[in-house]
Each structure stands twice: as structure tokens, then as C-alpha cells.
């Protein structure tokens, strides 16, 4: 193997710079950090204290009302009291982003989007009182204009097979057997029975969803949060269903319920 002197000197250095991609929890802020906000947050953390202990966090500012002033340094400290470590922010308007940067919270690009620094471009969501559940992912701005190509599989995915759709959606127009595994950075659609494993949002896209005509999966996962077959409510088993993240939890909804307004 040919190595030049530059490489050797690089290896001798006491550090290496590398790129890496990580799946992080995102906290959507929809209003100023009030007392009620921290009470609700505390409730949530008590439900799964181990999961949240020293959890790194990205703050999503898309839902922040534009006229609010936020003390990010204070917010960061109070989150730390709850065991959460804020690392960065995403989305929101320029004014908030600058305030965040002063508090040591840089801007990271949101999954599937380019960095947007134009203060006027962000669609401000109606102000909401603190502590209310954040808007569903559908309320987020549309993803980048360049469509991600979906991978389409037209034959049954049999036991032992693993299919990965990097950077996009995976569509299977047949059944997926127990022991098979579907992986996608985007959504997963199964127009048949889903009996194997399905992992959507593999690279950390928390807005990714799984859709199937008959939910019998061994495991479903979105952006690293998962449920195994045992945890799927029996009432939804063998029903058409969608799986998505809501308030940091994996939600499984049968499609019939959606139309009666329960979702």
C-alpha cells in the first residue's frame, strides 16, 4: 500500500477529523419555556427515566412564535437539570438561531432538508401555549424539492432476506415474511402482510413512517425507537395500520380509526 508523507504525519497527529451521522432526540419547542413546560417535560421523563438520562438533544425551533424572546442559556441549564443535554438547534427563524448560537447551540440541518438561514422563509406556526403537544409532523415545511427515489420491490420478501433503501423510501407491493427485514432511510410501505421487521427512518429521520395492509410484524422501528410484536396492541394486529413517531413515542394507528377521527 502506497502511503505518502502527508498521510503519515496525519496519522501521527493526536486527533483525526471525520464525518459521522447520529440519531438524536429532537425536542420541538412551540412556545416560550414556562413553568408549565418543565412540569410537563418532567412528567414525560419520569415515564422512562433511563431513556432520558443524559440524553443528547436537538431543539427544533420551527414551531416557535417569532415575537418571543428566548433565553437559550437559561433553557439549556434547565434542561440539564432534567437530565437532558441540548447540543444544537434546527429550523426556526434567524433571530432565534442567532440567540441560540450565542448560548453555544449551533444550527444543524434538519433531516432531509438543507440549512435555511433566510429569516423570512420559515412558516411560523400559530403560537401555542407551552406544554401542549407539538404539531404533528405533517405540519412541518415540505422537504427539499429534489425528490428522493423510492425503491420498489414487486415480489414477496421471503424469510432471511434483507432489503435496504438508502436515502429514500421502500415500497413493497407484496407480502413480507417473518424473518425478512426491511430497512429504509425514508418511509416503508407494504401493500400486503408485514410479518417481518421494518425499520424506517434508519438514518434518523423522525418523520418517517411505516404503512402496511396487515400488521403482523416481528418488530417495527422508526428512527431507532422500536416495538416488538408482543407490544403491538392485539386489536391492531392483522389490520391495515401506520406507525409513526408522536411526541417521541412510537404510535401505531389502525387506518379505520383515522377515518372516525380518533387520530
Amino acid at each position: 500500500m502506497a502511503t505518502d508523507t502527508e498521510n503519515v504525519s496525519e496519522r501521527d497527529a493526536s486527533f483525526q477529523l471525520r464525518g459521522g451521522s447520529f440519531t438524536l432526540m429532537v425536542l420541538k419547542l412551540t412556545g416560550p419555556a414556562s413553568e408549565a413546560f418543565f412540569v410537563k417535560l418532567g412528567d414525560k421523563i419520569r415515564q422512562a427515566p433511563n431513556f432520558f438520562r443524559n440524553a443528547p438533544l436537538v431543539l427544533d425551533l420551527d414551531g416557535m412564535p417569532g415575537n418571543e424572546l428566548v433565553d437559550f442559556a437559561d433553557l439549556k441549564a434547565r434542561l440539564r437539570e432534567h437530565g437532558l443535554i441540548a447540543l444544537a438547534v434546527q429550523g426556526g427563524i434567524h433571530r432565534h438561531q442567532e440567540a441560540a448560537l450565542r448560548a453555544g447551540l449551533p444550527l444543524v440541518p434538519a433531516a432531509g432538508r438543507a440549512i435555511k438561514l433566510d429569516p423570512g422563509a420559515t412558516a411560523a406556526t400559530a403560537p401555542q401555549s407551552a406544554g401542549r403537544p407539538p404539531p404533528p409532523p405533517a405540519a412541518r415545511p415540505a422537504p427539499d424539492a429534489v425528490g428522493r427515489p423510492a425503491m420498489v420491490i414487486n415480489e414477496p420478501v421471503r424469510s432471511g432476506r434483507q432489503i435496504y433503501a438508502p436515502g429514500g423510501d421502500l415500497v413493497v407491493t407484496a407480502m413480507v415474511s417473518a424473518g425478512a427485514e426491511l430497512l429504509a432511510d425514508g418511509h416503508i410501505h407494504v401493500y400486503g402482510a408485514l410479518r417481518g421487521r421494518a425499520l424506517a427512518g434508519l438514518a434518523g429521520d423522525t418523520s418517517a413512517r411505516i404503512f402496511c395492509l396487515s400488521l403482523e410484524a416481528e418488530m417495527v422501528s422508526i428512527s431507532g425507537l422500536y416495538r416488538v410484536n408482543e407490544d403491538i396492541p392485539p386489536a391492531i394486529v392483522k389490520k391495515p395500520a401506520q406507525i409513526y413517531l408522536k411526541d417521541g413515542y412510537l404510535s401505531i394507528d389502525p387506518f379505520s380509526d383515522r377515518f372516525s377521527g380518533n387520530s
Binding site: S159, S177, A178, G179, A180
Partner: peptide
């Protein structure tokens, strides 16, 4: 299940 694997 094993038959399914062989079909694959």
C-alpha cells in the same frame, strides 16, 4: 418458515 426461506 423454513420453506419461506427456501422460496427466497
Amino acid at each position: 418458515r423454513d420453506s419461506d426461506r427456501i422460496l427466497g
